[in-house]
Deep mutational scan, measured.
Amino acid sequence: KKIKIKIKVYNPETKEVLELEIEVSEEEAEELAKKLAEELEKKGYKIEEVEI
């Protein structure tokens, strides 16, 4: 079964909002969402919402 992940991120420095969407297997979904959120935060983005 495929799971659709939508991530909306906001960069306070540039006032930019990015929306990302990807489909992955159920097993990958939670781990991938967690890794993406961590990487984006390292780059200065503030995570507003992660929906699985």
Rank of each mutant, 00 (worst) to 15 (best):
I47A: 00
K6V: 04
K2Q: 11
I5T: 00
K15R: 09
I47S: 01
V50A: 01
V50M: 06
E16Y: 14
K46N: 09
L36I: 08
E23Q: 10
E38M: 10
K43C: 14
I52C: 07
E39V: 06
K1H: 09
A29M: 03
E39K: 02
E19I: 12
K2T: 14
A33C: 09
P12G: 10
K42V: 01
K46F: 12
K34M: 09
E30T: 06
I22F: 15
I52H: 02
E38R: 10
L18M: 06
L40D: 00
A33I: 14
E27M: 14
L32T: 12
I5L: 09
K34I: 12
I7D: 00
E16T: 10
E51W: 12
T14S: 08
I22D: 05
L20W: 06
K2Y: 10
I3N: 12
G44S: 00
E30H: 15
E49I: 15
P12F: 06
E26R: 06
T14C: 05
E30W: 14
K2R: 10
E49H: 08
L40W: 13
K6Y: 11
K2W: 15
K42N: 05
K35W: 12
L18W: 08
E28W: 09
A37Y: 08
L32M: 06
A33M: 14
S25V: 14
I47W: 01
G44R: 01
I22K: 05
E38A: 11
N11S: 08
A33S: 05
E21F: 12
K4I: 10
I22C: 11
K34E: 04
A29S: 09
L18N: 04
K42Q: 03
A29D: 02
L40K: 00
V9F: 15
I7L: 08
E51F: 11
V9A: 13
E27H: 15
Y10G: 07
A33Q: 03
L36V: 07
L18K: 08
E13A: 11
T14A: 04
A37R: 10
I7K: 00
K6N: 07
L40P: 00
A29W: 07
I47N: 00
K6E: 02
K42T: 02
L40F: 07
A33W: 08
E49M: 11
I3L: 11
K1R: 14
E13K: 11
E48V: 12
L18I: 11
K1W: 04
E23L: 10
K6P: 00
K15I: 11
E39P: 00
Y10N: 10
E31N: 09
A37H: 03
I47D: 03
V17W: 04
E39G: 03
K1G: 07
K43L: 09
E26W: 11
V17G: 12
P12E: 11
E48T: 08
S25L: 15
K35Q: 07
L32W: 05
V24L: 02
G44F: 01
V9L: 12
K6Q: 03
K35L: 10
K2A: 11
G44M: 01
L20T: 02
L40Y: 07
I22Y: 11
E21S: 15
V50L: 09
E21L: 15
I52A: 02
N11D: 08
I3C: 12
E13H: 13
L40R: 00
I47P: 11
E39H: 05
E13Y: 07
K2N: 06
N11A: 09
I22S: 08
E51T: 15
Y45S: 13
E38S: 07
E13R: 11
E28K: 13
S25N: 14
E26H: 14
P12T: 08
L36K: 02
K2D: 05
K4M: 04
K46G: 09
I3D: 03
K4V: 05
L20Q: 02
A29C: 08
Y45V: 11
E21Q: 12
E48I: 12
K15C: 10
E49G: 12
E31S: 08
E23T: 08
K8P: 00
I22A: 14
K43Q: 13
K4N: 11
E13V: 09
I52Q: 02
E13C: 04
K34Q: 08
L36G: 00
E28T: 07
Y45W: 10
E49F: 14
I5W: 01
S25D: 14
E19A: 12
E48C: 15
K42D: 04
Y45C: 15
I22W: 14
N11G: 03
E41L: 05
A33V: 15
E16G: 08
K6A: 04
E27I: 07
L18H: 07
E16N: 06
E19G: 12
K1F: 05
E13D: 12
K34S: 05
A37C: 12
I3F: 15
V17P: 04
L36E: 00
E28L: 10
E26Q: 09
K2P: 11
L18Q: 03
E26G: 10
T14L: 05
E23D: 13
I7Q: 00
V9W: 08
E23S: 13
V9E: 00
E30D: 05
K8W: 02
E39A: 06
E27L: 06
K43Y: 14
K2G: 06
L36Y: 07
Y45M: 15
I22E: 09
K43T: 02
K35E: 06
K35N: 06
E27C: 14
L32Q: 13
N11M: 05
V9Q: 00
V50P: 01
K34V: 07
K6G: 02
I52D: 01
I5G: 01
E21R: 14
V24Q: 02
K8V: 04
K1Q: 04
E49N: 09
K8G: 03
